[in-house]
């Protein structure tokens, strides 16, 4: 079975600073592999191990991060045999990303199963895999919490509206897996060193047909913070009494 895992590099959220005008300052935020894609990679590796005689490869499209050797190792150290990258100049929307990945999928020669993470760590729309499947004309399942093989067939469990739906999938197909499916692998030093020797095939976005984004981001601003009293109480009798009185008054105000 040939498995292709789609990966995205995102900014380290914890290091994103907020400017006084509430715009975001990314200058101190390094790139990292989206946490959900680490899970998708591991889900792919486990399915491949279960299937035997399988190949797992990874595909990533994006800006400068796709050329960053540490980021390439972040993917390859988690198991895939090869990484394909598409360097784009501008951030597109979901449809343009899906159309680009669909063309890259065809250029790679396709795969039996494409695995995407639950959502990207930054935008978390949770819909790229479905749009990609629609573009490819293959089946899509989102919110997949288990992937198994049953006599060579792929069986996926999809969580929706508090129910677990089990499907048998014909390949090719695209699945988006939830973070429940397995724990992401923590690569060893040997994995990281080995990753440097694995092949990377790098393409430019200009090698592909692009579409103008249909959705434009007007602004991205940190939320306005509500003013809070920030009253601090010690846990001695006095502090406890004052805290509970304030709590009790607020509850009474609601009743």
């Amino acid at each position: 079975m040939k498995i292709l895992v789609c990966c995205k590099y995102v900014r380290d959220e914890a290091a994103i600073a907020v400017n006084p005008d509430r715009t975001l300052d990314m200058s101190a935020a390094s790139w990292e592999l989206s946490q959900y894609d680490s899970v998708a990679l591991e889900a792919g590796m486990r399915l491949a191990a279960a299937a035997g005689d399988s190949l797992v490869e990874a595909l990533s499209a994006g800006g400068e991060a796709v050329e960053n050797s540490k980021m390439r190792k972040a993917v390859l150290s988690r198991g895939p045999a090869k990484l394909y990258t598409v360097r784009t100049e501008a951030d597109g929307d979901i449809l343009s990303a899906a159309k680009l990945l669909a063309q890259a999928y065809e250029r790679i020669g396709g795969a039996d199963l494409v695995i995407c993470g639950d959502g990207s760590g930054d935008m978390y729309s949770q819909v790229l895999g479905t749009v990609l499947a629609a573009e490819l004309g293959v089946s899509a399942l989102n919110c997949v919490s288990a992937l198994e093989l049953d006599g060579g067939r792929v069986v996926a469990t999809r969580m929706a509206s508090g129910r677990a739906e089990r499907y048998e999938l014909e390949t090719p197909a695209v699945v988006s897996v939830t973070s429940d499916i397995c724990r992401a692998r923590i690569p060893s030093m040997k994995d990281i060193l080995g990753a440097g020797k694995k092949p990377v095939e790098a393409w430019s976005g200009t090698d592909f047909e692009t579409v103008a984004p249909a959705v434009e981001t007007v602004s991205t601003l940190a939320p306005e913070k509500a003013e809070r009293l920030k009253k601090v109480y010690a846990s001695d009798e006095d502090g406890l009494e004052q805290f509970v009185r304030a709590l009790s008054d607020s509850i009474k105000g609601v009743m």
Binding site: R11, E13, I16, L24, D122, Y124, S219, T220, L221
Partner: peptide
Amino acid sequence: VYGGGAVAL
């Protein structure tokens, strides 16, 4: 977006 760190319009 960004895990609740920002709101995109």
